[in-house]
Amino acid sequence: MDEQKFPLNNVSEPKPPEMGRRRFLETGVWATTSVVGLTLFGTGGRFIVGDALKDKDEQWINLGEIASLSAGQMHQTAYSLRHKDAWRTVEEKGLLYVFSDDGTTYTVFSAVCTHLGCNVHWEEARDGFSCPCHDASFSRTGEVLGGPPRQALTQLEAKIEDGVLLVLV
């Protein structure tokens, strides 16, 4: 290695103007790197988060004629609706429980347990819902009777149009 060509040893004995230039270059390197880094991480971060934080689109779905949903009885209804899952259009499937005392007002529960999202079962004998995951139980009106959930079953907005029950999911 030719020490005359590459006088690296001299670097450790800087003259004041050299020092200023070196510090300037160093600052330049860090500043440029920071700009590049922030741009990359900013873009990447925003890209990765994507639309994840958007709320779910709500949609009215048709649960059929109320005539077929007899009063005084809990009806389990599966629904499927077309739903955008990023670049796919999928049939989203879900489960609802429909109940009416009088055949005029309807209560619709989402079957999703408010604890950790398992589907609850209707148990006729106990007149309530139960969740298989952590033995939670809910009353007919969706209130928590036992187990870990802190919230009642989610009640969905429902309306009747022309004798047809519509639910907002």
Partner: peptide, 27 residues
């Protein structure tokens, strides 16, 4: 099948203790 009502979820065994602890903890 997201619409299945009968499936009882169970995590992989090494997360089981945490999943099971939830049984004993009030909401």
């Amino acid at each position: 099948n997201p619409a299945d009502t009968d499936y009882s979820p169970k995590p992989e065994w090494y997360f089981l203790f945490l999943f099971h602890l939830l049984h004993y903890v009030p909401g």
